[in-house]
């Protein structure tokens, strides 16, 4: 084999070896998402009057009652929200009715009744702010069963309206 031939064979072998780390190519895509800020309204706790006895009024205080109802709202920090209720005057069990003497409510920006701002839920719209992105609305009331109130499950509809701006 001539010298030039040896040189060429060596060069070809070297080039073949370099093929192992041959060629890199790139391609791109994007990862993407569209984030939407939600609002949330949920029933955090049920208004629970517990055992109710005929002829004995039973009250649950919104601002202090352990069994007060609670609604948990979230929204934009600082934003205004209007809260109103559609409330029944009576509960019904078949043809029997049980009067609801009064409703009361309060709201707070933390999930704690202490220091909450009172309002009358049956009186119209209450305005509040999401100071830290949350609002907790507590609801209580008084039921006034008659002395001969028949036993049974008494039910009524309660509607919470929350208007965002």
């Amino acid at each position: 084999m001539s010298n030039s031939m040896k040189y060429a064979v060596a060069l070809a072998a070297a080039m073949s070896l370099t093929a192992v780390s041959a060629e890199a190519q790139s391609g791109n895509i994007n990862a993407k998402a569209t984030v939407l800020a939600p609002i949330t309204i949920a029933q955090g706790a049920e208004l629970d009057f517990g055992n109710v006895l005929p002829g004995v009024n039973k009250s649950v205080a919104a601002a202090s009652g352990a069994t007060a109802g609670r609604f948990d709202l979230t929204g934009v920090t600082g934003a205004n929200v209007n809260v109103s209720f559609t409330l029944p005057a009576n509960l019904a069990s078949g043809a029997n009715t049980l009067p609801i003497g009064s409703w009361d409510g309060c709201h707070n920006t933390i999930a704690n009744q202490a220091g909450c701002t009172g309002f009358t839920p049956s009186a119209g719209t209450t305005s509040a702010n999401f100071v830290a992105g949350a609002l907790y609305v507590y609801v209580g009331g008084t039921v006034s069963p008659a002395g001969l109130q028949p036993a049974g499950l008494y039910q009524a509809n309660v509607t919470l309206n929350a208007a965002y701006f």
Binding site: S21, A22, A24, Q25, N28, I29, A33, T34, T74, T77
Partner: peptide
């Protein structure tokens, strides 16, 4: 094919979010 997951915080600002994903292939 590529999947993945995003975990937006509750306070994540609304809007469109994007970032590039690059695939580099070395051929032998």
């Amino acid at each position: 094919y590529l999947g993945g997951r995003v975990t937006p915080a509750a306070a994540t600002a609304s809007g469109n979010y994007t970032a590039p994903v690059v695939l580099t292939a070395t051929f032998f």
